[in-house]
Design a protein around this nucleic acid. Structure first.
Lengths: 223, 223
DNA sequence: ATGCTTTGTTGCACGGAGTGCAAAAATTGC
DNA sequence: GCAATTTTTGCACTCCGTGCAACAAAGCAT
């Protein structure tokens, strides 16, 4: 187990207030999205819940949907922190997989799945999430660049990161479809899928053999 | 060379008018984006150029940025048409690569690159494009599902398509960075990159060896 | 504590985005 | 040509997103 790298600096009241406000807004937005549905609430409703002014909201987020991507950004923060602590000589795919699984263990997954599922109902939320993945991709590519140095071409690097993210997203999608209610082993279900997808990637998708969920739905994949 | 599958049905005036209007709006939006920059023009300016009412614009597109993704959607139309005509026993990656290269030969690439580069300057356009890629992914997955039948799991299928799109996107990005002006061999440059990225994918990213553009920029990659 | 500087919040105002609705115009079928 | 259908348009309305200036809170020095 890796230590959490908490940045536990003194952190003045200025910084803390901003973090709190940001979180309050994000929480308010999430609760609203959960209760009335994504895209079915206004910024005014959010700020009323969060206890800030309308103008302040837009100081933090450019749109209501962006307040719903905070969780993913934080998730990437964690994952990158984990990744940077892994030994530099560990095999690449192994390190990536470990960074993901280690992170999913400290962060709850249910909300991510819930948000992912919400995106199916609201194009604007979907776009915000895609943008979030894009930002994450850039950040991860950055971290990988630091790890691999100039040994790898830019194309190799960006394509690899893109594929890792795509595979992870496919796993999330599959998981969201086949594990709608919060099942007991929900976490393991997702982990298994991410692992399966990344393994396919490592093998160049040579074997179409069904590892998880054949074609018909409702096959809980006894893993 | 494959035939273009032109759907040359009679096509009444209703249908034709809609197509024309759609195209007029898309063209007007593209010209504006090109001259004043993406995100720097209003819907009113677009509709004035296109010669339609403001309300009509929103009958066709939900936002100004969406009018700029028409080209990519059409590109996918073409590519899918090509893909479906390829022999069913052709190796998967080969078929995908061929579908792409065949399509790039009939469609101009410069506008795609231009739009791609524009997205770096306007978050909303970027989101619209990401959404467009997402739609394309779904459509391609559909086509692949028809081709592979139930032999492949959903996860395999969606992960594969996602990775193909990601690799292509990485190639586009690399190309857009290293080939800013419309160079003479612009088309071949892009083709080479897409091929390189998809080859990396097929090989499971086992070899970080620099195929195109080592690390430093401005290395035209003698192909 | 007191004042001074820096930084974050709020209200206001304004232009633009997006949508429901009903009237008007264009296309189609007969 | 006439009636039915489909598309375009104008209007009105709400909500979004932002520049600006006044205001409040935190930091800093004495």
């Amino acid at each position: 187990m890796l230590k959490a790298n908490h940045h536990a600096e003194p952190l003045g009241r200025r910084e803390q207030n901003k973090i709190d406000t940001r979180q309050a807004i994000a929480d308010a937005a999430f609760e609203l999205a959960r209760s009335v549905g994504p895209g079915a609430f206004t910024v005014d409703q959010v700020v009323e819940r969060a206890g800030v002014s309308r103008r302040t909201f837009f100081n933090y987020f450019p749109s209501a949907e962006d307040a719903l991507t905070v969780r993913m950004d934080l998730f990437i923060d964690l994952a990158l922190g984990v990744f940077e602590q892994l030994p530099a000589d560990e095999p690449l795919f192994g390190a990536i997989i470990r960074a993901f699984t280690e992170t999913t263990r400290m962060e709850g997954l249910s909300q991510h799945g819930e948000l992912f599922r919400m995106a199916g109902a609201d194009p604007d939320l979907l776009r915000a999430q895609l943008h979030s993945w894009e930002r994450a991709e850039a950040r991860i590519a950055e971290a990988l660049r630091a790890r691999l140095g100039t040994a790898a071409s830019e194309l190799y690097l960006t394509a690899l990161v893109g594929c890792v993210m795509s595979s992870t997203r496919a796993a999330l999608r599959d998981w969201a479809v086949h594990t709608p209610p919060s099942a007991a082993d929900s976490g393991r279900q997702l982990e298994a899928r991410i692992l399966a997808a990344l393994t396919m990637l490592r093998d160049g998708f040579a074997d179409p053999g069904a590892l998880i969920t054949p074609h018909p739905p409702d096959t809980p994949a006894r893993s």
